[in-house]
Design a protein around this nucleic acid. Structure first.
Ligand SMILES: NC(=O)c1ccc[n+]([C@@H]2O[C@H](COP(=O)([O-])OP(=O)(O)OC[C@H]3O[C@@H](n4cnc5c(N)ncnc54)[C@H](O)[C@@H]3O)[C@@H](O)[C@H]2O)c1
Ligand SMILES: NC(=O)c1ccc[n+]([C@@H]2O[C@H](COP(=O)([O-])OP(=O)(O)OC[C@H]3O[C@@H](n4cnc5c(N)ncnc54)[C@H](O)[C@@H]3O)[C@@H](O)[C@H]2O)c1
Lengths: 208, 208
DNA sequence: GGGTGCTTGTGAATGTTTTCACAACTTATT
DNA sequence: AATAAGTTGTGAAAACATTCACAAGCACCC
């Protein structure tokens, strides 16, 4: 299939949330216009996004909330459970370990690791922080799908290499440094300092 | 001036980091090719990005590390200090309050607020969590530039309205819900659950 | 069963971003 | 002073993403 734009997939995730809201309210159908106004985009955008994957709607009526939600979950790979480990049990690692939204979406935290003896053994929402020396063995036995990198910037690239060598194919990085992943590995980064800089840019040029 | 693409500004932030690394290493010039290989983009991309703002390089030689860094800081609005407050002193709010990278870039955390009596009074890296009832008065007196929203999703939109009414023009939201800001307000969102879903999508389609 | 009103799905048009490719210029060398 | 080697800055081309606009299809009503 033709390559789908990241922006499209990002919107798909949003549509799914809106669909779940609609379901919670007991509504059975939704139109592209409804989805659009919830997300601040146009209805043509919504229909075009969905059209890349097939035609799920009924002309004159809209989309079945349940059917569309199910189809989007399928597209995003959310029908299964993903096993996730976190490396770095510091401030952000601990927050992530206790973040409920992950579990609700099928991302199950199955381990968290640190080097600092003071952090090892601590319980975060039921998960005990393990020594990072156990990481390699656990990568072999548990075979997690995704690693969250929550270590200091200078430790991030070596860690990335370590986990990809062990067969990890999905990584979400929180260290504020661009990482280089081998091909076949999907790497995404969340960089909060950079987001603030973007805000700074917009505020600055809006003034001028 | 013509509207600059967000992707360009995002890369500018990265270039600035690379320049600071170069400076730390004592290097005085850098070429578009050097910047490109550090960031995993092409040298044409680097030059095009910079060309939107002027011509800063020397043909045959490259860019002066100091001069370019200074110019990018100017463009991004990082020559000044930004006053930042955090609302929500929970797990993510606390992590953000203690995040060093913000201060290093001139984003000064000048207040953090919560509703929960158990959180109020707690010290986070020297900043005491205040009662959110003090928020409106502080918005008037302190006049912060940027608000970080770190409250539960259902409290986010009301909070956004509250702070924008008080004159806040820049907001970085961590709640996993699309917010609607009045015009003139710059709103950005960091949505970690959504990032994981994007990873899920890529891993899923890579398999198929 | 035909008419009415509404909404989808999608080519075509438009707008945006990236890549290409090379003239123009700088420095170093002979 | 002329040549060589290297790098920028930038129009033009290509690739990509969004918006437009409307025929096609369905539900509902009379
Ligand atoms: N605090 C935040 O809000 C925040 C936000 C965004 C990004 N980040 C980034 O996340 C990373 C962690 O930040 P933090 O604020 O949690 O810092 P932190 O110092 O609280 O946590 C880092 C943890 O990583 C551990 N660690 C170091 N090297 C390790 C290794 N090789 N293996 C396993 N564990 C290791 C340390 O022992 C420490 O517990 C940094 O890269 C930071 O820039 C932090
Ligand atoms: N934990 C994470 O790693 C994480 C990651 C990304 C996003 N988020 C999002 O950030 C938000 C907070 O998450 P958290 O995990 O820190 O939850 P949390 O429950 O630990 O913290 C939320 C805090 O907000 C406070 N609060 C609630 N309403 C408020 C109001 N009106 N004014 C001021 N304070 C108020 C609560 O008392 C609580 O202390 C949520 O929207 C969550 O989805 C969390």
């Amino acid at each position: 299939m033709k390559q789908i734009a990241e922006s499209t997939v990002r919107r798909l995730s949003l549509y799914l949330r809106f669909l779940e809201d609609y379901r919670r309210q007991g509504l059975e159908t939704i139109s592209s216009g409804d989805l659009a106004s919830l997300g601040g985009m146009t209805s043509a955008q919504v229909r075009k996004d969905l059209s890349f994957f097939g035609s799920f709607g009924t002309r004159g009526l809209g989309y079945s909330v349940n059917a569309l939600a199910h189809r989007i979950r399928e597209i995003l790979g959310l029908e299964r459970e993903w096993q996730v480990i976190i490396v770095g049990a510091g401030k952000i690692g601990a927050a992530l370990a206790q973040y409920r939204a992950f579990g609700e979406r099928g991302f199950r935290i199955v381990g968290i690791y640190d080097v600092d003896p003071a952090r090892i053994g601590v319980s975060l929402d039921g998960t005990i922080v393990k020594d990072q020396r156990e990481l390699d063995a656990d990568l072999q036995s548990v075979k997690p799908d995704i690693v969250l990198i929550a270590v200091p910037a200078e430790a991030a690239q070596p860690l990335l290499e370590r986990v990809t060598k062990a067969g990890i194919r999905g990584v979400l990085n929180f260290a504020p440094t661009p990482l280089h992943a081998p091909s076949g590995v999907t790497l995404r980064s969340v960089d909060m300092a950079l987001e603030l800089e973007l805000l700074s840019y917009t505020l600055t040029s809006a003034m001028a």
